[in-house]
Every structure is written in C-alpha cells, then in structure tokens.
C-alpha cells in the first residue's frame, strides 16, 4: 500500500513544483515506484520541470471524466522506469475535478505504487481542496520571507482542520550569507513561528535554474547543494535519520584558504 503525500504552500512561487519534481525523482532513483500528480489545472508546470512536456496526450481531467484509461494518462519519465506523471489539464479550470474524484484516483494508485506525490496549486480554494482530498501526509514548503511564512501558517491551520495532522516543513531558498548577516530569518526562527517539524532546508542555488532550464531535476546533480538537500529530504521521507547539511557558503576567500591548508 502506497503513501499519498501532498506538497503545498499557500503562496505561489516558493518552489512547490520544483520540490515535487525533485522528491519524486529522488524516490524513483532509490528504486521506489512513484506517481506525481499535477493538480494545478489551468497552470500546469510539473511537466516542463521534469522535461516531459512533449509527451502529454491525456491529462487528469481526461482520467476523471473517463475520456481515457488511467494508464494512458500516466507519462513515463525519461530517466526512471518506475516514475510517472499525471499532468494537469491546461485548458480547463479547477472545478473540472472534485475532491471525491481525487480521492478515488489516489486510492486506485496506492494499490500499485509506493509513493503518490501531489503538486498542489497556490491558494486555498478548490484546487487546494482537490489536492489534499486523497492525501495522508502533507509537506509545507516556505521561503524565509514574511509573506511565505504567513501563508504557510494559514495552510498548516487548514491542513489540520482537514485532519492532515503533523505536516512537515521544507524551508526553500535559504541564503546562508544573508542569515549570517542577520538579514534573513534563520531555520530556528521559522520552526519557532510555525511550530511544525522540519523535513529539510534547501539553499538558494543557481543549479535549480539551470536544471529547470534543461528539464532535469537537480536531485540527480551530484555537484549541486540544493540537489544534495533534496537527496537528504528523500532519505528522511524513507525513514532514515539524516542530519541537516552544512549550509555555510564555502566560496569565500578565507574558506578557500582554510580548505587549502586543510583547516576547515
């Protein structure tokens, strides 16, 4: 029996889709059977982040309306045999799917797959309700900004009201150099305010932009800091205990010097 996890945030642009793509790809790279569902109907993006945009024939609305069989709408990933995407429809709106239909869909997928990861749209309306309908666990993504943390707090309240207890937090796009200067909220500040467990911290990383440009999730990029953070998150989802990675920027002159002499 698989696990259904929704990735949500309230605010848009904090990295829900990137997180979904990386967690899904990471789980698949460890040999798990994974389905990703894009529930952002009208604004689909998970397909491009995964580099699968050219393969879409059917979408989630086709599935729930019975225009195609479930398997026909499941697009196989280029890299991993056991990773599939059910894309959102681009020309319909959020009401084209109901929470009951989502629940049925995830129940069906759970039989065969280890993880069903749902990419939730921004906002708290119908799209959000659809996305969480079949979920058993929730991951809340936020960035260290007031607006994102405020919305995360609201989302956590709504998740708990919908019986999705104990959501886990991912802090995305943290800039260690700004934190050091006291110009960005740090990890403890946010955990303190939101009062939920931390699943991981992803540093701001240019590799994310590059990997999105190419349609290749950064979790597979061994040299990327964000990729490493996502690999850690994936291992934590699998139940492993992985300590937080050292986020200290190591490209300053002094740290290079220290490295040269093997001090750091």
């Amino acid at each position: 029996m698989g696990e259904v996890i929704v990735i949500t945030s309230g605010k848009g642009g904090v990295g829900k889709t990137t997180t979904t793509a990386n967690i899904g790809t990471g789980l698949a790279s460890l040999g798990k059977k994974v389905v990703l569902i894009d529930t952002d109907i009208g604004l689909r993006n998970l397909d491009v982040v995964l580099g699968l945009e050219n393969r879409i024939v059917y979408d989630i609305v086709d599935v729930v309306q019975g225009n195609c069989r479930l398997k026909q709408a499941m697009i196989k990933d280029k890299r991993f045999e056991d990773l599939c995407l059910i894309p959102a429809a681009q020309t319909k709106d959020k009401t084209a799917v109901s929470p009951e239909q989502m629940k049925n869909l995830t129940d069906q997928l759970k039989e065969e797959y280890d993880f069903i990861i749902i990419d939730c749209p921004a906002g708290i309306e119908q799209g959000f309700k659809n996305a969480i309908a079949g979920a058993e666990k929730a991951i809340v993504v936020t960035t260290p900004e007031i607006a994102a943390v405020r919305d995360a707090d609201r989302i956590i309240g709504l998740l708990e009201a919908s019986e999705l207890r104990e959501p886990k937090l991912i802090i995305n796009r943290l800039r260690p150099s700004m934190v050091k200067k006291g110009d960005m909220m740090d990890i403890d500040d946010m955990i303190d305010i939101l009062a939920i467990d931390l699943l991981g911290v992803v540093p701001e990383d240019e590799a994310i932009v590059i990997s999105t440009n190419k349609g290749e999730p950064a979790v597979l990029d061994k040299s990327s800091k964000a990729g490493e953070a996502y690999r850690n998150i994936v291992r934590r989802i699998m139940g492993e205990h992985v300590p937080l990675m050292n986020l200290e920027a190591s490209n300053g002159f002094m740290s290079k010097l220290k490295k040269l002499f093997g001090v750091s």
């Binding site: 007031i146 934190v179 006291g182 110009d183 960005m184 909220m185 500040d189 305010i193």
Partner: peptide, 10 residues
C-alpha cells in the same frame, strides 16, 4: 538586522 523587524512584524 532586518530579520528582527521581519520576525516582529510576522
């Protein structure tokens, strides 16, 4: 440090 301002406002 501006994070203090952010925390207080938040």
């Amino acid at each position: 440090a501006s994070k203090k301002v952010a925390k207080e406002r938040l």
